[in-house]
Design a protein around this nucleic acid. Structure first.
Length: 227
DNA sequence: GCCCAGGTGGGTA
DNA sequence: TACCCACATGGG
């Protein structure tokens, strides 16, 4: 048996990739937009983030220097649809301020460097926790840093690959120690997990946290465990 | 009306 | 370290 089949993470990826095909993910046009979206989507449905992003785009504020020049109240109003708007407006302003304070306003420059060093620098920013940092690293910076989100955790629990009590870092390590450090692979893997969960939620389950992922898995190949 | 969403930071024991 | 809570809008 090849490693493809003996490694459960390889097997899950193959099933999802065969079913959905290449996704080449993060719905954003620029690295800066990725970072802004990553902050705005914290504990928030993406459909709400889209409204906020559209408002920012209309004002030209998807560029760091423009966002920096916005008053706090204006920024709050633009991102209001994404929820937690006061908190997130502060985080966005702190983020762009840091960009200009240490990196000439360039996100690319901030992200240029060894993965671990850049990750530590991101985590030092107020409002950027592990998931947001990894999303920015992977989707804006092209770093092979695996993103663990609620969907990832839910899927692994359903597959009994974790018991549910694991920390973010433990789950991230589980992926990164069992997969090659490949940016494209991590990009696709996380995107496929989100696609699967949204697909399942759209079709069958009124509440995502209760999705019977395995029993309705569209690949049909993950249905060999009770939900 | 009620539940939940691609988290994070601060407070308390 | 391990919980608990605030943060807020919009869709099902």
């Amino acid at each position: 048996m090849s490693e493809e089949n003996s490694n459960p993470l390889h097997r899950v990826f193959s099933l999802l990739a065969d079913h959905y095909g290449p996704l080449h993910w993060w719905p954003a046009d620029t690295p800066f937009e990725v970072a802004i979206g990553a902050i705005l989507t914290q504990n928030t449905a993406w459909t709400n983030v889209e409204k906020a992003i559209a408002n920012l785009r209309r004002e030209g504020a998807l560029e760091a220097h423009v966002m920096r020049g916005l008053s706090r109240s204006t920024l709050e109003e633009l991102i209001r649809p994404a929820g937690f708007f006061r908190q997130k407006a502060e985080r966005l302003h702190l983020f762009v301020a840091h960009l200009f304070a240490g990196h000439g306003g360039s996100l690319e420059r901030l992200l240029d460097g060894p993965l671990d060093e850049v990750r530590t620098a991101l985590l030092a920013q107020k409002g950027i926790g592990p998931e947001t940092a990894d999303s920015i690293l992977l989707y804006a910076g092209g770093h092979p840093s695996f993103v663990v989100d609620a969907y990832t955790r839910r899927l692994l629990e359903r597959l009994a690959l974790i018991d549910g009590g694991e920390s973010y870092q433990q789950i991230r390590s589980f992926f990164m120690e069992n997969l090659p450090a490949d940016t494209e692979l991590f990009n696709e893997y996380h995107a496929l997990i989100v696609e699967l969960c949204k697909d399942v939620c759209r079709k069958r389950a009124p509440r995502c946290s209760l999705c019977p992922l395995l029993s309705v898995c569209p690949t049909g190949a993950l249905t060999d465990s009770p939900s």
